[in-house]
Design a protein around this nucleic acid. Structure first.
Length: 286
DNA sequence: AACCAGGGAAGAT
DNA sequence: ATCTTCCATGGT
């Protein structure tokens, strides 16, 4: 058992983080206690780390409680919650843009990474072209059927487990046949074809696009979301994303959803922080 | 009931 | 290369 108190630079709005994750049934959080319980795997050892916010948006502070591998666990938690990203600098950048109001409304909202690389990729597949509510339901069924639980916190199944599944097992959970094939196929890329997701961490976005889009079921949007939510890359703007399209439609009061051409034009001012433009546009329509 | 949803593959042009 | 169609299934 270990405990650690941590202070970071503001602005950082942890309550916004909790709020954004509230619709996800797999996230164990408490808005009033300002806590979240996070499944962490370090060197194949799984543990639950409890995070409690003790500060404010301007003076953010946290208390962490874990079981083992203290230093590595803190490092991973810091990475997941993006505690070292200078949100003040990003906030300033957007003051000169059309997104100024949205950024001021949701000031201090960080990008928060998915807890598991493989899980993040599977989640992206599940979220393709279905509404969020159903996507959360499917993900919850998937994890609670094939994953494992520690202290009430669910961990994503390992690729080995998923690679051994039959399409029918996912159909039983109301996955479409196609999505079932995609998911099992990705797991097999890892277990049989030597795909190492952790190695991707050290590669540029373009190289990752090239490798992952070769996999059946993994298109541009899926890689963009993986880069954004699994690796925390700062400059992604998924044009095909319905949420972003709706965010732009609302912002510019458009009659209908923007064309790709219009989106390409809007996004120019938001480089090199397009991921944050995406995040805040998503927030604006949540 | 009809349209939509944090797309992608396969086919057509 | 780029555009269109089909897929698949619950939510509103």
């Amino acid at each position: 058992m270990w405990q650690e108190a941590i202070q970071i630079d503001g602005p950082y709005n942890f309550d916004s983080v909790l709020q954004r994750h509230t619709p996800d049934p797999l996230k164990l959080l408490d808005l009033e206690k300002r806590t979240i319980r996070v499944p962490i795997v370090i060197a194949e050892k799984a543990q639950v780390v409890d995070i409690t916010a003790t500060g404010t948006t301007d003076r953010p502070a946290f208390v962490l409680n874990g079981k083992t591998d203290k230093e590595a666990a803190i490092k991973r938690v810091s990475e997941i919650f993006q505690w070292k990203v200078p949100l003040d600098k990003i906030q300033n950048h957007f003051q000169e843009t059309d997104l100024k109001e949205i950024f001021n409304l949701f000031i201090g909202t960080p990008l928060v990474l998915d807890f598991d690389l493989f899980g993040s990729l599977i989640k992206c597949i599940i979220h393709q072209q279905i509404n969020m509510t159903f996507a959360y339901t499917l993900t919850e069924r998937f994890v609670k059927t094939f994953g494992y639980e520690i202290e009430g916190v669910w961990f994503f199944p390992e690729p080995e487990t998923v690679a051994g599944l039959q399409v029918e097992q996912l159909r039983d959970l109301q996955f479409s046949g196609r999505k079932a094939e995609y998911i099992i196929g990705i797991a097999k890329e890892i277990t049989e074809n030597g795909l190492h997701l952790d190695v991707l961490k050290n590669q540029p976005d373009e190289a990752i696009f090239e490798q992952l889009t070769k996999i059946r079921g993994v298109g541009r949007w899926t890689v963009e979301n993986f880069l954004l939510f699994a690796l925390g890359r700062p400059n992604l703007f998924p044009l095909a994303d319905i949420g972003i399209q709706n965010g732009l439609k609302k912002l510019y009061q458009l009659e209908k959803k923007p064309t790709y051409e219009e989106m390409e034009r809007y996004k120019q001012d938001w480089e090199p922080y397009l991921s944050y433009a995406s995040l805040y546009l998503w927030r604006s329509v949540e």
